[in-house]
Design a binder for these strands. Structure first.
Lengths: 339, 339
DNA sequence: CTGAAAGCGCTAACAT
DNA sequence: ATGTTAGCGCTTTCAG
């Protein structure tokens, strides 16, 4: 149907040189002082025949693809999905396209994806680094490629990043539970030394210190199947009998809620880092630390575009505040429940 | 850090021609009868210096990118997100990469994305078509590009597609509600003439016919903000007083549940097309028609790979069965509720 | 078995 | 102001 039409075709048809057409097409008509008339004639003709330059050839020639690679932990987590959507929209308006992939937080997959994006010559990278990818990211940075990390960063690696204030967010949630009268406040987190997890633990511990409580920490394995995690968590509940539980991520909270629902133990107070649609609909509604999604997306794309434009003197390291959203699940502890 | 190394570099270093290296790299050593020894020597060297061919140049030359474009309605909907993940994994194992984007079901965005992918010369397309993109898809097909639609298809356009049995799924859910003793069973759906919506309506109506009930249909606008939809739905509930509601999609159900939760009307029985994590956690748990996600992903990728390999005599149009998952929200109607 | 060379479609010095 | 032309890095025909 559509015969592929080339820049040389349109040059020939119009009796001008390809250079002229190329200049006009790339908005250099003014700069190269090409006549208004000709410019318009070319543009109109291009429009008419529906000429589209071969982006592959263009990229090969210029070394630019106008593509940003977005490598995130899990596209099916609403937190990441929403950030992805926002970034996509913002990048789009700046003439960049996004291609994204999920890592499932697996180092091998992350490394492979970064390699894939390198092969495809993406212009810049936005990454939620999993553990064990320090070298790979390092090599990106050393190759002068624009990179900005988010949700977590890599200690000892000087890159740009955008994260939320995990310490304060976790502190606020824990302190809130303490203020509501809960005494045995547990933290449910992952076996993970990633910065966001470490910081949430830190925030939790600081609040525990402030209120002179005892810590109860349950760690679970990211990779385990849901059944295993549920029963392990249930065992923890039975064993430690916390009267409040703070989940370090929304997917941990969801698994926890499943466990609570299944095992019909008496419901402790609950709070979670990261918000989720479910939290507004669960009975009771769930208190959560909400990250500033829009702000994170803004900072990410601005930081990256800055680097892409070459205006990046230094790396930007942004920490944005989270907000505690208080819902039913952290209602003040009733005396009847206590002793 | 990494000096970009070219095929000519490795040819020079090894004292052979680029042709030889290229042949070896592309697995044509045997075919071209290049000595085992040389083949190994080249491969080892390539390995050692970490040579990576420039995929851009390769694509420009061969006209193949080994990339599949995945254009879906909404990556933040778990149904689509999960399918995307499965497709990604399967494509990956066949040497294809996936790049995906969301359309928000907007025709303009869909058309733009298809154009973008065309510009990037993706080898094949998997698309959830929004309304009003018939011509664009047509032009893809006419240009002999491998395309397979899913979740819905475009009537009057002969393409491959993979959908679930929407009529039967909706029929089953509605019939189930009827069998449980509900009399005023409402359907909540979108203003949309897309095939999946039309078919779900159809299935609902057939069940209504079978059980000699009256239909109650509420249509809402996809584009409206949540508030508007909630109040419009609440008005419908107050006005029509259905004793059971069947939602045509999971996001409609979620909005509906929010409305029910907010307005504290007496809870009707509820069922939804498409499952969702939330449905297992809501109180009551929500009955849902679950689509065979794995099966859909399998069929999609197989159909597309078939076309990519050129073994596609004809278009494949696959309809997969859905499964009704009965949960608490459709418990038999109690006499106390009735009259 | 291996090498020379012609492009894939485009951009941008360089020349005019 | 516009045309000529040399590549970007790779694959692949055609000759040895």
């Amino acid at each position: 149907m559509k015969k592929k039409i080339l820049i040389s075709d349109i040059a020939r048809d119009l009796g001008v040189s390809v250079t002229t057409v190329s200049f006009i097409l790339n908005g250099k008509a003014k700069e190269k002082r090409i006549s208004e008339g000709l410019t318009k004639r070319v543009l109109d003709y291009v429009q008419k025949v529906g000429y589209k330059p071969n982006e592959l050839a263009k990229s090969l020639r210029t070394g630019k693809t106008k593509i940003i690679g977005l490598i995130i932990e899990d596209i099916s987590n609403p937190f990441f999905a929403n950030i992805a959507r926002l970034i996509e929209a913002k990048a789009y308006s700046k003439g960049y396209r996004i291609i994204y992939c999920s890592t499932d937080n697996q180092p091998e997959k992350t490394i492979e994806l970064i390699q894939l994006f390198r092969d495809r010559h993406v212009d810049g990278y936005i990454i939620t680094p999993s553990e064990g990818v320090k070298d790979t990211i390092q090599s990106l940075v050393s190759s002068q490629l624009p990179v900005v990390l988010f949700d977590r960063y890599i200690p000892g690696l000087n890159t740009s990043y955008v994260v939320s204030d995990n310490i304060k967010g976790a502190y606020d949630a824990t302190a809130h539970l303490a203020q509501q009268g809960y005494k045995r406040i547990a933290l449910v987190t992952l076996y993970s030394s990633q910065t966001q997890m470490r910081d949430r633990m830190d925030g939790y511990m600081r609040a525990i210190d402030t209120y002179k409580l005892q810590p109860y920490v349950k760690k679970v394995n990211m990779g385990d199947d849901e059944e295993t995690t549920i029963s392990s968590f249930s065992a923890f509940l039975a064993d430690q009998e916390p009267d409040a539980v703070f989940f370090a991520t929304n997917y941990l909270a969801i698994i926890g809620l499943k466990a609570l629902k299944q095992h019909r133990v008496s419901m402790p107070a609950v709070a979670s880092y990261d918000d989720h649609t479910l939290f507004k609909l669960f009975t009771p509604t769930i208190t959560a630390v909400s990250q500033p999604i829009e702000g994170i997306a803004d900072e990410l794309i601005n930081t990256l575009l800055n680097q892409l434009d070459g205006n990046a003197k230094e790396n930007r390291q942004v920490v944005l505040p989270s907000t505690l959203i208080i819902r039913e699940s952290s209602r003040a502890r009733t005396s009847s429940t206590g002793n």
